[in-house]
Design a protein around this nucleic acid. Sequence first.
RNA 1: GAGGGUAUAGCUCAGCUGGUAGAGCAGCGGCCUUUUAAGCCGUUGGUCGAAGGUUCGAUUCCUUCUACCCUCACCA
Length: 490
Amino acid sequence: MQARREKLARLQELGIDAYPHHFERKHLAHDILTQYEQCDGKEVTIAGRLMALRKMGKAAFAHLEDSSGRIQIYVRKDDIAESEFEAFKLCDIGDIVGVTGTVLKTRTGEITVQAKAFALLTKNLRPIPIVKEKIEGDQKIVYDAFADKEMRYRQRYLDLIVNPEVREVFIKRTKVINSMREYLTGRGFLEVETPILQPLYGGATARPFTTHHNTLDMTLYMRIANELYLKRLIVGGYDGVFEFAKDFRNEGMDRFHNPEFTMMEVYVAYQDYHYMMDLVEEMFGKIAMDVHGSYKITYQGQEIDLSPPWPRVPLLEAIEKETGHDLYGKNLDELRAIADELKISTDPTWGEGKIIDEIFGELVEPKLIQPVFITDHPLSLSPLAKKHRDKPGLVERFEPFIAGKEMGNAFTELNDPIDQRERFMAQVALKERGDDEAQPLDEDFLRALEYGMPPTAGLGVGMDRLIMLMTDQYSIRDVLLYPQMRPEQY
RNA sequence: GAGGGUAUAGCUCAGCUGGUAGAGCAGCGGCCUUUUAAGCCGUUGGUCGAAGGUUCGAUUCCUUCUACCCUCACCA
């Protein structure tokens, strides 16, 4: 760093501005590389960061990387102005430069821009990690990869500078979101925005973050979901609404959980969960096509085929198939005995639904690699879902599973205000028993239902997990630009 | 919350059963006008994550702390 500051001083002595205001870039590296035939011999103007430098006295080769890719430049003393060559001699890897020159192929066949004019655009004062690459046939061998995870997450800008594949992941992230937005908008649904700061949280079972509004002098909660607000909009008369929502949950963190994460929720009037399953498999298929050009993707070495339709398996059938036990209609004692037999440890405070969920989570969920809809969950676990039309004790709900992970949650929405009040009361009872994740009663939401919500299908999709799947990333931190970290100590 | 792992030069990493640190790349100086992990010659560089302890002596052994990673628990 010291050396770079000295270079900066020398540049100033030479009257060279190390931080000019503007540069008229006209071409991108990628375009030159892919359209070499048209570019050969022509003049181009490119700009980017120096990522490799091979100086040879009065000439040098370097690699310049812009947003589109990396291209070699060739700088000869005789080809550019003397002051420009002086500036070039003071350049380091990491500097941002602009080059005007002619496109040619070198003796070794690499497409190169031979500089006729050179400008330093931004002097780098802090050395970037040097990653060396060697191309051997089609194989790119990387030496000394910048891989320190802590540094990559804390200094994401460095990660992005040095690791092009990381840049690619976040481009795909946006593609996934755009593709989904396009799909939902194409269906005629209305994208809306609902409050993040809420006086009452709801719509999911989770502990919220709490904050305080000074002027109103009241507690506000960061939303854990936006479900209840979106359903109020269906009451209001919209046929379909959706939102890409940052939600916040004050819970543990691991490779699938970050305290703030993105959920897409959509609600459609006059539809039920069967419609929503159709929608999910079609929408996920479109996203895979838009991002990969195929229904077949690879996640962590597993081949996954998203071609619709996907199997639809009731949760209890899935358990029976795996364990041989039919849990439908079983009482608490019977369920506990079966759990013991299956060597699933249970907690004495758990109800029937929780035990069933636990058995499913332990024995079935990890095996659901190919896309599947698991349907018809126990009522006690789903306080916002409508009762099943044929199966007492269950609700019309489904969760899509891919690669052993739940990708979302959906139901035929509960629109009976009296039933909804009873479900809320059950939650309140749980809360009083000490379950700090149970949902509070939302009197205004009940009032809205009393005005009448049409039959409605609703869906929530965990976007970060979907993006992990679509970008083949192992950890949620690798699909979040700024994953939550403890403060760095200086 | 429990257990395990990691922390050494700007980056990637060595460093045995205790004797105050080493390589490659980067950097700096020199040579070099088609190189590509450029090359050749020379050279700088470190509070060994932090604080204590044991010891004549600690990067190494012990304790505590901090951060990150992994597994489990909690949780979607």
